[in-house]
Simulated assay, not measured.
Amino acid sequence: MNPTATALRAGWSRGLIELRQTLTNGGDLFNHFFWPVLMLATLFFLRDVSFEQSGFMLGALALPSILGMNAAMGMVTMSQILTADREDGTLLRAKATPHGMQGYLVGKVVSVSGGLLVDVAIFLIPALFLISGLSVGGPGPWLTLSWVLALGLVATLPLGAVLGSVFTSTRSQGLLTLPILAMIAISGIFYPIAALPEWVQWIAQGFPIYWLGLGMRSALLPGSAAAVEIDESWRHLETAGALGAWAVLGLLVAPVVLRRMARRESGSTVAERRERALRRVG
């Protein structure tokens, strides 16, 4: 039997088990509901606010953008999980198994992606009843939503694995949160990016969060809403190209970085990190 196929199958099974555990654990369920409920509260206050003289409601413009932001935040989740597993020795055990790192990575992609889809459903279903002005009739919008979401996950989750390999402690993950929040602030999530200075627009277009938000807006908003976007267009080709480029970069870099990180892991390094953690607690 092909060992790679065995590792992939094991990773798939592991991911489904981890996903099921998050959906039956009280603390994890709270985390699944907290962010979507918070975003729904934000939409509630934006639902009747108009963007300048365009006639479009900020709530309708923000809803699909928030979906894109949630997908992009998957790289933060991936980074945090990988760092925690590195710290407690889980990665060391995966390293000791033939093709264990490959199976581990597949499992994490499956569990994190599944959790994100649950979060999207928790947010999107009630939001469709809360916000008016969306264009969700027919299969077209849902097909666009599907390919943007799938490509966005492939573009961001490997980057999360790379970031998780860089950080050596869960305590240092706060260094990642602030830059991500800064990218969200300039990516047109809560306010159309066309209203921001041009140099900010160029920076935002260099990161996947903007393109995820744009792709989601193109799926759920009427065509006339493109008037408040850059070039007054949904730019589907550019969206696919930008997310595809990030996906290729992540898929090329992540395995190399993970292999190098795994080679540095040993029982002594895990024990040393555990001893440092105990000293901090003491």
Rank of each mutant, 00 (worst) to 15 (best):
L8W: 02
G11I: 06
G11R: 02
S13Y: 06
L16V: 08
F30M: 09
T42I: 15
Q53C: 12
G55Q: 12
M57K: 08
L58W: 00
P64Q: 05
A71S: 12
M73D: 10
G74Y: 00
M78F: 01
D88V: 14
G100A: 14
M101Q: 13
Q102A: 13
G107W: 01
G107Y: 01
V110W: 01
V118F: 02
L124C: 02
S132A: 12
S135I: 05
G138R: 10
W142T: 12
L143C: 10
L145T: 05
L145K: 00
L145N: 02
S146Y: 01
W147K: 09
W147I: 15
L151C: 13
L153K: 09
P158N: 13
G164C: 08
T170C: 12
Q173K: 06
L175C: 07
T177M: 06
L178M: 14
A182E: 04
I186R: 00
G188R: 00
E198W: 04
I203E: 03
L212A: 10
L221V: 08
A225G: 09
V228I: 10
S233Y: 03
R235Q: 14
G241F: 05
A242D: 04
A254C: 14
V257D: 08
L258A: 12
A262T: 15
R264D: 14
G267M: 12
T269A: 15
T269M: 14
T269K: 12
A271S: 15
E275F: 15
